[in-house]
Amino acid sequence: MSNPVESDKKSTDTAKQEVPPPKVVSTPSSPPPAPSAPPAPPAAKLPCEFCRRILDSAENLEKHKKDEHKADLKKLQALHTLSDSIVSKIGAGSSSSFVKPRRFKISVPVKKILKTALYLRDDIGYDSVESVSGVDWPNDNQFEVVYHLTSYSIKALEDTVLALSTKVPRDNPKAPSLESVWKSSEYHERETHEMFGIIFKDHPCLDLLLLPEDWCDIPPLRKDFNLPRRTR
């Protein structure tokens, strides 16, 4: 561990073999250790467990993958600092997790999502929403709404995707609309509304877009809309 980049010979893909896939249902994790300040020295400790696993499994990396991996690591370090700073800024209830070196996810409570979104847009520079996905978790009685953010204007963030996730209760699925923050989320939110029944407050238009206008069933992408039983 003393000189990780030197001995790093491992692509991130193979790294993940040994990593149990990160949990999707993100629970408020223990407050992450303070970000190690400068990513410049290669020996800098990576704080989270996911990163440590990647470094640990670096021995069997092939020679030509070295540079690639070095870049990945650097990115990872930078992103880690970023995600930690975001989490600490938002405060209690939020957590961050990594899926890949260039994909990280920030879970926030629904009350704080508007504030988080404004912070991400104005201070970090995420300026576009790539997709808004709803995920139905009937066992937890929750819907998860995931905004995948990317940035065109900040070059350093171009190759990363930030998943901003929040959870709303299944009985009362209401979330603030982020249309006022990112205009590009308008149609995606509209689609999530009709597919999951999540009501986005202050959204300009929540009419049915993809479904027929006389749809009077439950929203179709919920898990209790059982397809085989209905098409039998």
Partner: peptide, 24 residues
């Protein structure tokens, strides 16, 4: 698919296309 989630994007003919896969 092993449990977890993954988000991948690629450049299709009409522009960037992405998939978000959640697996249990």
């Amino acid at each position: 698919l092993p449990a977890g989630e993954s988000y991948a994007r690629a450049e299709a003919a009409r522009g960037a296309m992405s998939y978000y896969i959640v697996s249990d």
